[in-house]
């Protein structure tokens, strides 16, 4: 049995895309309350890859076992998942994470405590920056620089897909790279020279790219 307290620390790897707990919302990925027992690709309002929805239709339901194999190697279980995550190789990390998630799931095995809140906000931004309405046409031009590596189809073959993200998540992620809170040298460099308006423009363009 995993330890939910240790799992909370593991969840930090997840929270740039997923929220769990009181007031958790769908972000880049679906919110994870009641994940145990949920049909894969089955949460209304969340963005999924076609192959995740198909997996759910084929009968994939998230249990401790299926979550364990998905978390070990996401693409091994669902080949074209949008989830750009390499996986957790350590079985203890996975058990602890699942124990943590279980505490946010109802049902006989879930404690349904709903007290803690894990939210994927790397940095606090001025509300005026988040409220900016991006120039999507400028964003389309700027996006061409992203598409040398990130595919417009949303596929990820070693570099994450960045299409169909909620605008706010996109803006927060880019500012987090710009402020060097997120640690990737290429992305820090690319975001580093983008103005607030340019980040808003990119977010506006990519949010509508399916």
């Amino acid at each position: 049995m995993g330890d939910p307290a240790l799992g909370a620390a593991v969840f930090k790897k997840c929270q740039s895309c997923h929220q769990v707990g009181d007031q958790a919302k769908n972000r880049v990925g679906p919110q994870l309350n009641d994940i145990l027992g949920r049909t894969a690709g089955g949460l209304e309002g969340a963005k999924y890859s076609k192959s995740m929805i198909q997996a759910g239709q084929d009968g994939l339901v998230w249990s401790e076992d299926t979550l364990d194999s998905f978390l070990e190697s996401p693409k091994s279980l669902v080949a074209k998942t949008r989830m750009s995550f390499r996986g957790l190789k350590d079985p203890e990390d996975r058990a602890n994470l699942i124990a943590y998630l279980r505490s946010f799931s109802k049902g006989p095995i879930g404690a349904s405590s709903m007290q803690e809140t894990g939210q994927g906000i790397d940095i606090k931004l001025d509300p005026s920056v988040l409220a900016m309405v991006g120039d999507a046409e400028y964003g389309e031009y700027l996006s061409s620089e992203c598409l040398t590596c990130h595919q417009s189809s949303g596929s990820n073959d070693g570099i994450p897909g960045i299409t169909a993200w909620p605008t706010e998540d996109f803006v927060i992620a880019m500012h987090a790279y710009k402020q060097k809170v997120r640690s990737h040298p290429v992305m820090q460099m690319m975001a580093g020279r983008l103005s607030d308006e340019e980040i808003a423009a990119l977010a506006a363009y990519f949010s509508n790219l399916e």
Partner: peptide, 17 residues
């Protein structure tokens, strides 16, 4: 290893582009 995997992602990306 992550850098190499990223280069494979770039190859897929630039050829698609």
């Amino acid at each position: 290893k992550a850098t190499y995997e990223e280069s494979e992602g770039w190859y897929a990306g630039i050829t698609a582009d």
